[in-house]
Design a binder for these strands. Structure first.
Lengths: 331, 331
DNA sequence: TTCGTCACTGCAAACGTGTGCAAGATATCC
DNA sequence: GGATATCTTGCACACGTTTGCAGTGACGAA
């Protein structure tokens, strides 16, 4: 079918090994033959077979990036960060999304293993702890981002981020503050909630479980969560959302209820996805260093690939980005 | 390093070929040995090598999906559609994004070729026409979505979609209608603009080049494009945007100028990304059958893989989704 | 002339798996 | 009991590369 190194060898009247060396610019091949063979290769439409190469070299120079969903706007910059440093070091990165389904996540990791990627980065895992058990078995390094349950991981300080958001709302005079959560199993959710509780506690405000609505990390869930909070009497005057997507949904629920942001309810998100600055009103949120998250994850993976004992568990700090979705309680 | 079929063979006291057959559930292997070997395989932590397998079978059972950007919300459903039918047919799909850079796009296609994927789907190509030249050389089937310049492609009828949007605005009484474009090289942009012009022409409204603002398909560009249109005297009373992201930016520009949607300016988008229904106000837009786009693309690829002569150039119709971002001119 | 050196190139094995063919073992039939 | 059919397994080669080592020829030096 496709032309191989042997075909070129035959055409050039040399051995396959010479062709291989010529194409890889081996020093002990004469300049003349190199040029001849390279010309022949393009003429014949030769495309080297990475699969044959990997079989003998035992490395693929690829890394697998597994993500919960391609549509997740939070991930775009993370992916960029990963690819950036991967490419700089000669690695290709292939993505695969598991649609927030732990079964698919597992299956994707296995597919990557079968294809013998040199390393794996997984973002926002649904399996988290399971990797510790897998670690030995899989034989290649793997680092998680947005998850601190695993030995090699890089994430943002969610507790600190939660405090940032809620402290800000408290500072504006709000005392009845809601939280719209996501899947309570997610460690990120637990930490942000912990930050929320901690901030309240320091002001001597008792934690009221009724004030935490349940979402799913997406707009739909945010809407439901907000509706849940609006049914309270009285409803909260400010709401901290698990992430920006949740805030999108929350804002829609408020609009449908005839309420306005920030006049009636103040809103704080998390992530600072691209959309946040363009929303109506622009969303106050806790920015995650998304690109840096990706860069650091890939750097850690490179260190592991090089056999270095890498610093485990990098934790980055987020920062509050104040826009227009909050107002003082008695302004 | 990792355990191979030979290791299992040695441990079981049989030949490698027996192990290979046992694991693949070959009918001519006794049930007893099959069970024994399978058990041994999991005990020893065996992971089959897709690369060795592909080398001999000459297929990888993977397809490469190349996209402009993971952050593009339009693509999420397209990807889902592709994966859906790919998985159903035993294919894995690996993604790679080229960040809207034709050079990277080319490089990714080559990487996929080297890794011997069985087929390639590319969405929103920057290379479009170049593939016709490549076609022969690459030796595997490749189908494009969102691009009609190539023999095998599936896309939405952009001209029809543009008409849908502008006809609607005309129907509401608007006559001074703007268009915020993206990169004029993009064929989708040209077609939507053509739909815009055609709709105007049929109502006897002369095309005014000043009424087309220049964006970039993202929020930033939409903002700039809108600012450009607002500088006109008089500004348009309604604006059709190349896509929803552009509309996001346009809305932000209007808000900053102290104008309101739809009271001061009506807005129509294109794509119907998930966000559109949640925006403030909810965005009227032309829905693309995104998931179907992906499904059809992958189906076409499967037909090509099977050697069938596939119907070339599938064109799907979009539909107008009326929400709250438009109002009658004299309401 | 002979030997050593140097610059190139080829041989052959290996990577881990799949598969056609033949061979061995066992059962079946006459 | 021998021939034949059936079931199970092994041999050997192939896939397309890379790479250590040996080999070839030319050329200069002794």
């Amino acid at each position: 079918m496709s032309v191989s190194i042997k075909d070129i060898a035959k055409a050039a009247g040399v051995s396959p090994s010479t062709v291989s060396r010529a194409l890889r610019d081996h020093p002990r091949i004469s300049q003349q033959t190199k040029e001849y063979i390279c010309r022949l290769a393009v003429e014949m439409g030769y495309t080297p077979s990475a699969v044959a190469r990997s079989l003998v070299t035992r490395r693929t120079m690829t890394i697998g990036l597994v993500l919960p969903s391609v549509s997740d706007p939070f991930l775009s910059q993370v992916v960029l960060g990963v690819e950036e440093v991967a490419l700089d070091n000669g690695y290709r990165v292939f993505l695969c999304s598991f649609y927030n389904d732990p079964v698919q996540e597992r299956s994707i990791v296995e597919a990557f293993l079968e294809h013998r990627v040199d390393g794996i980065v997984v973002t926002s895992s649904r399996l988290d702890t399971a990797y510790t058990a897998l670690q030995e078995q899989l034989g290649i390094p793997i680092v998680l981002t947005n998850c601190r349950e695993y030995a090699y991981s890089v994430s943002t300080d969610n507790l600190h981020g939660g405090r940032l958001a809620v402290d800000y709302l408290l500072q504006l005079g709000h005392t009845r503050i809601g939280y719209i959560a996501t899947d309570p199993q997610k460690q990120a959710n637990r930490s942000r909630l912990a930050g929320y509780r901690q901030a309240l506690q320091e002001r001597g405000i008792a934690f009221d479980p009724a004030l935490v609505g349940v979402g799913d990390g997406r707009a739909e869930g945010g809407k439901r969560g907000m509706q849940q909070l609006l049914a309270l009497n009285p409803p909260p005057t400010a709401v901290f959302c698990y992430n920006d997507m949740t805030a999108i949904g929350a804002a829609a629920a408020l609009r449908e209820a005839g309420l306005r942001v920030p006049d009636d309810v103040s809103l704080v998100g998390f992530d600072d996805i691209d959309w946040a600055a363009y929303s109506n009103p622009p969303l106050t949120t806790v920015r995650q260093p998304r690109r840096e998250l990706g860069r650091r994850a890939m750097q850690m993976l490179l260190e592991l690939l090089a056999g270095e004992e890498s610093p485990t568990k990098v934790v980055l700090q987020g920062e509050l980005v104040v826009r227009a979705s909050c107002r003082p309680l008695w302004g």
